[in-house]
Design a protein around this nucleic acid. Sequence first.
RNA 1: UCCCGGGUAGCGCAGCGGUAGCGCAGCUCGCUGUUAACGAGUUGGUCGUCGGUUCGAAUCCGACCCCGGGAG
Length: 400
Amino acid sequence: MFKILKKSKISNARLGIIKTPHGELKTPIFMPDATRGVIKHLGAQDLNNLGLECLVANTLHLFLRPGTKLIKRAGGLHDFMDWQKPILTDSGGYQVFSLIHKNKNNGRIIDLGAIFKSPLNGAEIKMTPELSIKIQFALGADIMVCFDDCPPNGYSDKMLSASVERTIKWAKRCKREYDKQAKSLKNNKKPLLFAVIQGGDNLELRKRCSEELIKIGFDGFGFGARHVDESGNFLAEALKYTADKIPENKLRFGLGIGLPEDIVKSIKLGYDMFDCVIPTREGRHGKLFLFNCHAGAKRSGAIASQDSIGRSDQSVGAPSGMTNNFYETINITNAKFAKDFSPINRFSKLPEPRRYSKAYLNYLFKIKEPLALRLASLNNLEFYFNMISEIGELIKKDKF
RNA sequence: UCCCGGGUAGCGCAGCGGUAGCGCAGCUCGCUGUUAACGAGUUGGUCGUCGGUUCGAAUCCGACCCCGGGAG
């Protein structure tokens, strides 16, 4: 169940609340990816300390290993990973793109679903809409996503159209399976079910896909496939068009979005939920996200005025507050940090980024010490968390 | 003092007659519903010094200077 608490007077942004079997979620929300049932290098206690409210786990990955039988035996994914707040499970639809579309050797798409070659042992796995939903129930997900066909950039309209039709057909089957599984559950134990709108940058196809999916009836709708073009430019038109098609009382999920500025833009278009590997993966690769201005009105103003032009520049060393960008990224592995004994982030609410120096983190990366990956992940997740929190405050005041 | 190794990019090394490469480090870029603690690109060197042989020397010869190891 979703309820809008407040709509911004200056954009389509809104504040809302989602009721799930594992508690309530405030939107807008950023949900980090715990694809395999873990935010790499962090434990549930870390996630609680960060204040995170919801994670995204992956149906296909968890099905392959450790398998639903084992997770059921553990009492469900929440107990297995000791995370008692909501979990959203992605359906495996993205893997149709990331595995099959990127490399035909990894599987193929059939009418019934998709055949994946397991990256673990090469065994063929037939993923169907029904199986995806069954797995998501077995995992104990709070929010489920329909199995969809996520196409790559550059698909012809004909191919995109086929992927849209397949996505609609599969969504119907997901819904049917969901109804079957959820029938016996009490209302407050029923998970939410989302569908994913495909169609690439073709607005006609986005229209068709959204209208058909809305007819079927879901709790929320995702913007599927790439939200940026090959050069990384935000596909504002398709994002806006699709958001406007989704009924106001339904949740809007920007799957895989993204860079901080892309999230800012998407919230202004009316999207409520986001997940992305950027904070964790780029952290592991040595990139740290840091606010340019450290607190107060100046930073809020910078976030609110981040507009829809271009990507973030690498404004390392740029004078704070002088650019429209509200943040900067640094590559902590650069040698210039080897002697920088300032804290990773002296404004962090966590002790680690506040106490450990950049020089130490640089050194930890150099010796390939896993603690480096943990510290970078903590820093970046806190950045994303703070960014979303501040946006929420701004919406409350009609400043966003 | 003698004998044996060795001195080539910041470091570790390859090349052993046709005017220099590799790894690491450095630097730059990428990563967007995670097959990713990953991937791509790239800057550095009158090859210890001086002379000789040769059309041509990092490569062959001589002397010297350094650094190891051994003998005395």
